[in-house]
Design a protein around this nucleic acid. Structure first.
Length: 227
DNA sequence: CAGCTGATTTCCT
DNA sequence: GGAAATCAGCTGG
């Protein structure tokens, strides 16, 4: 929570065999470990979130919704599972590679098993506009879980602290898509930055399957008079 | 543009 | 069994 706004404007860089991509952070969210019902660490340590309970400065990468990766920076001392989700940014280096990954053209990157080109060309601003998009553009997956982001020699690293407060200042508001502790304003972003992801409130999904026990009323059909 | 849906793993009840 | 720190594709206005 303390360091989250300071990450805005910092640069996250990932160097792989395929090349280098760097993103200037525009949006982050803080999660307060065991004290925060919205945190993955709220219910204790699991195989997935183990890195969060380790020393600060490392990457916690998780897989969610069966297809997406998101990356956090572990912030508090060993045993204290606080972390900051890196939600969005602007690609400032390695643009062609970022675009290729996001369009599904690079094998072994992106969400598990996804392949083949998708539809229309992507806007440059959308390449890292959202936590899963940011990971895909940078080529981050569970292999980077635990990486030391503060080591300048690490393939995945963060450069900071930034030189100055971003022009336009910093805004804060509720976190995106969380159902619990939705009222706390622990999301921070650079005011007016177009790379900030659109805010979405948590919305429970309706019961998916249609009725089998009930017969829905027959809808009126065109050309067929009602009664 | 708002709203809804499918995809699909990890963890929880 | 079902929700979740998401995204893209599609529909209707």
């Amino acid at each position: 929570m303390q360091v989250a706004p300071d990450l805005l404007g910092c640069v996250l860089t990932h160097e792989t065999a395929g090349g280098l991509v760097a993103v200037a952070l525009a949006e982050v969210e803080a999660y307060d470990g065991r004290n925060d019902p919205a945190s993955h660490a709220f219910r204790g340590r699991t195989a997935r979130n183990a890195v969060m309970f380790g020393p600060p400065g490392h990457a916690y990468v998780y897989f969610t919704y069966g297809m997406h990766f998101c990356v956090n920076l572990v912030c508090h001392r060993d045993g204290d599972a606080s972390a900051v989700l890196l939600r969005a940014g602007r690609v400032i280096d390695g643009l062609p590679l970022a675009r290729a990954r996001r369009s599904g053209a690079v094998a072994g990157t992106g969400a598990a098993g996804r392949r083949g080109p998708r539809g229309a060309a992507l806007r440059e601003l959308d390449l890292a506009r959202g936590p899963a998009r940011l990971c895909e553009a940078l080529g981050i997956d569970r292999a980077q879980d635990g990486a030391d982001l503060c080591d300048p020699a690490s393939p995945l690293r963060i450069s900071g602290p930034r030189a100055a407060v971003p022009a336009g200042g910093i805004s804060r508001g509720p976190r995106v898509g969380v159902s619990r502790a939705a009222q706390v304003d622990w999301r921070f972003w650079i005011t007016g930055d177009p790379a900030v992801s659109p805010y979405r409130q948590y919305a429970p999904r309706r019961a998916g399957r249609a009725v089998t026990a009930e017969v829905p009323p027959t809808p009126p059909r065109p050309g067929v008079p009602g009664r």
